[in-house]
Amino acid sequence: MQRPEAWPRPHPGEGAAAAQAGGPAPPVRAGEPAGLRLQEPSLYTIKAVFILDNDGHRLLAKYYDDTFPSLKEQMAFEKNVFNKTSRTDSEIAFFGGMTIVYKSSIDLFLYVVGSSNENELMLMSVLTCLFESLSHVLRKNVEKRWLLENMDGAFLVLDEIVDGGVILESDAQQVIQKVNFRADDSSLTEQSVAQVSLPRLILLFWNFLPRALTTSCCDS
């Protein structure tokens, strides 16, 4: 069950107005305080994941809904979150009606954002998986320099953990295996293309050689 503080507050007079209008009163579920409704559970747990440097500048970010539809709004949100969290020892913050879990590493701050009624442990499992997976990809150097040099790998990691706000994986070992498989598959594809292209390139080159040069070589 969700935390009581996460339940939406009823509008004043909502139940009374419905009764006076002759309409049916909102259904009350077992264990739910009168006049309140539990929010339906959703697979879309994650609103955003972003990584900032120790000055609050964005290095990596993905937003999964339209809470902050423009880049300007996203950057303002990230700056406010950084100002609120960068000087505290806590790992959880509540800001703007959202639950935010975060972790710092050398000169990086990693954030996972969910709605106010999301389970903090669920969000923290995503954050832990992200950090451990990045630690493997960056060879245990989870810092700005190595992240910038391996940004493609970082996005691969994030895409294996969250897709469209849905948590796909929270086990770092599984994420690492999938990322390695995709990297190996990409390398194999590039190698195969090179192996196929080279003979074709030689053939094309030979076909377009001046016939005079070919005849000269044969005569000699």
Rank of each mutant, 00 (worst) to 15 (best):
G22T: 04
L134I: 05
E32Y: 01
L158E: 11
T99R: 12
A16C: 05
R58V: 15
M1Y: 07
F95R: 00
K144V: 06
I106H: 10
I46C: 03
D219E: 13
N150Q: 12
L203V: 10
A212W: 10
S220V: 13
D66H: 08
V137R: 02
S125E: 13
L138G: 03
H57P: 02
S133E: 03
Q74C: 12
P4C: 07
V179W: 02
V49F: 02
A212F: 11
P26R: 09
T45I: 14
P41E: 09
Q195C: 08
A48H: 00
G23S: 12
S220A: 07
S86R: 15
W206Q: 15
S104Q: 13
K84E: 14
E120W: 02
G56L: 00
M151C: 05
L156Y: 03
F68T: 01
R87P: 00
P210I: 02
A183P: 03
A172P: 07
M124K: 14
R58M: 15
Q174A: 08
Y102W: 12
S104C: 08
A172G: 02
L168F: 02
D152V: 07
G164Q: 09
G13N: 06
G15D: 14
F82W: 11
G35N: 04
A6N: 06
R29W: 11
G153R: 02
L123F: 05
A61Q: 12
D171G: 00
N119E: 08
S216H: 13
L138D: 01
L71A: 15
G22F: 02
D171Q: 11
D66S: 10
S220R: 12
N119S: 13
Q195A: 09
A21K: 10
G97R: 06
V81G: 00
E132A: 06
L203I: 08
Y64Q: 03
V175M: 03
A34N: 06
D152N: 10
T189D: 09
